[in-house]
């Protein structure tokens, strides 16, 4: 095979960028610059959202070229990327991750489940969306959302951040 190249990135959504940048203060901007460290937090996913998050690292999306990278610990994270309907059994784990992440921090809810519980809404075992436990800055719906959509969402965070 010839060496596959990353695809040109699609334009990002202005409106989301505006609303996000309004929420970022000066201190945040100095600290973060144009790169973001992301911690994935699974709050009960079926693993579909994880599969698409993993795809972000493949050569066609290559998320690192935008200054986005996954980290393994909340202490090094700027962004918590949350997947899955918030199960009662994982609420504590999300709270711990949130508490351990230094300020300023952002929370992105990925997938219909993390947005509002998705198809699992109403179950005794599920609380609902991520927002019931920690403040959410950005939601990206879909079941699961495509990598292109996730990437566009994350880039709005970067843009907002750089302003």
């Amino acid at each position: 095979m010839g060496t596959p190249q990353p695809e040109p990135a699609e334009p990002i959504d202005r409106e989301t960028t505006e609303s996000l940048s309004a929420r970022l203060d000066a201190a945040a901007q100095t600290r973060l610059g144009r790169s973001l460290a992301i911690l994935h937090v699974n709050t009960g996913s079926c693993n579909g959202c994880e599969l698409e998050l993993r795809a972000l690292s493949n050569v066609l999306y290559d998320l690192e070229r935008f200054g986005l990278r996954f980290v393994g610990s909340p202490r090094h994270a700027d962004v918590l990327l949350v997947t899955g309907p918030l199960t009662r059994n994982l609420r504590g784990a999300l709270e711990q991750a949130w508490d351990a992440t230094p300020e300023p921090k952002w929370v992105v809810a990925i997938g219909d489940c993390a947005v509002d519980g998705g198809v699992f809404k109403g179950s005794y075992a599920v609380l609902g969306g991520t927002g019931l436990c920690v403040p959410v800055d950005l939601t990206i719906g879909g079941c699961p959302p495509s990598p292109a959509r996730i990437l566009a969402g994350l880039r709005t965070l970067l843009e907002a951040n750089a302003k």
């Binding site: 994935h40 699974n42 693993n47 994880e50 996954f70 784990a93």
Partner: peptide, 10 residues
């Protein structure tokens, strides 16, 4: 785990 920071299941 359960949160392993690895894009994995919990």
């Amino acid at each position: 785990g359960p949160i392993a920071g690895r894009l994995d299941e919990a």
